[in-house]
Design a protein around this nucleic acid. Sequence first.
DNA 1: CAGCATGTTTGAAG
DNA 2: GCTTCAAACATGCT
Length: 273
Amino acid sequence: MPELPEVEIRRQYLETSSLFQTIQHIEVDDKKLLTTDYSTLINALEGRQFVSTRRVGKNLFILTDDPAVIVRMHFGMTGDLEYYHASLNRPRFARIVFEFATGYNLGFLCPRKFERVGLVSDIDAYLLEKKIGQDGLDITRDTLADRVRRKKALIKPVLLDQHVVAGLGNWIVDEVLFQAYVHPEQRADTLTDGQMTQLHQAIQLVLETAIRYEATYRDFPNNFLIHVREWDDSPYDDVEAHNYCPRCRTRIERATVGGRTTFFCPKEQVINA
DNA sequence: CAGCATGTTTGAAG
DNA sequence: GCTTCAAACATGCT
């Protein structure tokens, strides 16, 4: 489920499995998944090795032994990686496969085809061109406040906007707003200084917690809102128990904000404008 | 079977 | 040019 923490986990996975092995071949099932045309990609990467990685928001960059050849991966809603021995069956949905001379393969799994792979020649130039905001883990409180206050839209869609701050997705924004006691429909330019500080702290808390638990939701602290989402690894056997605010026990409300499903505590998250 | 989904891009409207 | 919003994308899962 690739939001920032999950992309970070994939970065670490790639970094510990797939560096310093010569790329012999790249299998591409569906060329629509590429943001660089197939022959350019093949010509640039065959014979190269991955040497390091960098993540910005939900973007994973993989540097090669040619400084001007960098792979960018985006995991869409459901993308994943799987490193496996070439003698084994190709994993399900591994629509792009990097085949190394070591006999191991790195599969880029795309169940829903919203994922993308392509080349960039300069990471910072790419970020500038795409106007990607600062990474959620790096952004300062004051920069966040400045970027947020320029927007008149609702705070939830503003936090989802990768140009404002990079890496927050739907569930993380809900969690951040819950931890910061901010209503998802408050206008971004009406947040007080105090709310802005709470928001910044909540972003750090949620991202660091998610990375620490390797994005495994069932292990998250009990005071996290995420447990209201009825995902397979919910920590509760009692389905009803996770429909209530973990702090005040008010029933959690479900709404659509900015076109996305949104959960919040109607008692503790109030519009303060 | 119908509805929903963790994300981004695009285009329309203001 | 900028902002905001809804739709579209392609497919899997419940």
